[in-house]
């Protein structure tokens, strides 16, 4: 990999200043994605600013029942947190469905938000990729695209966002807190990632010099009954073909609260607003679940390699909602 300078600031102000002062600088969390990409020559920072020493590594109770998760909390710690497991089980399940134990021990919450796609053409500097080299073309459109996105895609990019954790955060209406030399601001999770459009190289609303400092989870009592279901090519250590984060509250046979987000299907964690709209107030029935899934997937734009994802997503959504409704089939 390209030689680079390494700095490890002790406080947030120092970290954001270090990146702000240097256009070729990047923040380094657990390194589980950035270092890989540096080895492949896809990322070529001049300076890496290691932020794992910042005091952002606690999960704190918020007044009103929410949680504030420091950006440097390791994925394994967050998944194991008793409050997360009890109040937001889909989040704990999502994290544990990702990567391997060793990677989860390293990966940070902030870094996970900024994971980049696993599209093989993005990873191979010999291939054409608009995300890696804007305007360079896209070899995935007519190539191997079995793992690629079917929702929110564009003619310039069909890459899928790889994170599991982010799918749960999107369902839970998390808020991302970021900081730069210009100050602090808060971005809703559902608006944090961008769809590719004509600029697939821009993946989030984050400015290059902004640092993710925390993720806030609002209180969500219905999320205590929630589930993350990940479907992939092997039992562990593989990215999602389709994943579903869902929470469902049912009273007298009618849906009184529903949250649904999808992974493996779009360039961003996909909050299924349309499906939620159909579910809410309707009967908690197989037919209603199927109708909601179909409405959400109606806009799918498929290629020969990934056309199966529409059917798979429908089946997985219905199965996950059924399971939440009946409490059966959890195996």
């Amino acid at each position: 990999m390209k030689p680079f300078a390494y700095v490890k600031p002790a406080d947030v102000a120092g970290a954001v200043r270090a990146v702000s002062d240097e256009p070729g600088a990047k923040f380094l969390g657990g390194g589980t994605n950035l270092v890989d990409l540096m080895r492949e020559g896809v990322e070529r920072p001049d300076t890496v600013v290691d932020v794992t020493g910042l005091p952002l590594d606690t999960v704190d109770q918020l007044p009103g029942g929410g949680l504030r998760i420091g950006a440097m909390v390791r994925n394994s710690s967050l998944a194991a947190d008793e409050r997360v497991r009890a109040r937001y089980p889909m989040l704990s399940q999502a994290i544990l469905a990702g990567a391997s134990a060793q990677l989860r021990n390293m990966a940070t919450v902030g870094g996970n938000l900024l994971q980049r796609t696993r599209c093989p053409y993005f990873y191979d500097p010999a291939a054409a990729c608009n995300k890696r080299e804007p305007g360079g073309g896209c070899d995935a459109l007519g190539g191997f695209n079995r793992s690629h996105a079917v929702l929110g895609v564009s003619g310039s990019c069909i890459a899928a966002h790889p994170s599991d954790m982010c799918v749960a955060l999107a369902a839970l209406d998390a808020v991302i807190e970021v900081e730069s030399v210009r100050g602090t601001r808060r971005i809703p999770m559902t608006g944090f990632h961008r769809l590719p459009g004509d600029t697939p190289e821009i993946e989030t609303e984050l400015a290059p010099d902004e640092l993710v400092t925390a993720v806030e989870l609002p209180p969500a009592p219905f999320a205590a009954r929630s589930r993350y279901r990940k479907v992939r090519d092997r039992a562990s250590y593989a990215f999602a073909l389709v994943s579903v984060a869902a929470a469902l509250e049912v009273r007298d046979g009618a849906v009184t609260a529903a949250r649904l987000a999808l992974g493996g299907l779009a360039a961003k964690p996909w909050r299924a607003h349309e499906a939620e709209r159909i579910l809410l107030g309707g009967p908690a029935s197989e037919e209603s679940f199927a109708r909601a899934a179909e409405a959400e997937l109606a806009g799918a734009d498929v290629r020969p390699g990934n056309a199966f994802k529409v059917h798979l997503a429908r089946a997985t959504i219905v199965a996950t909602l059924r399971e939440l409704n009946t409490g059966k089939g959890t195996a």
Partner: peptide, 29 residues
């Protein structure tokens, strides 16, 4: 169940030359 080397039929280039994308079984399989 899982293994296949993906040779791009347009270029002859192997597109999954890594253990994260070429799926050998893991213990859980």
């Amino acid at each position: 169940l899982t293994e296949a080397t993906q040779v791009d039929p347009r270029t002859g280039r192997i597109m999954n030359p890594s253990l994260s994308e070429y799926h050998v079984p893991v213990h859980a399989d």
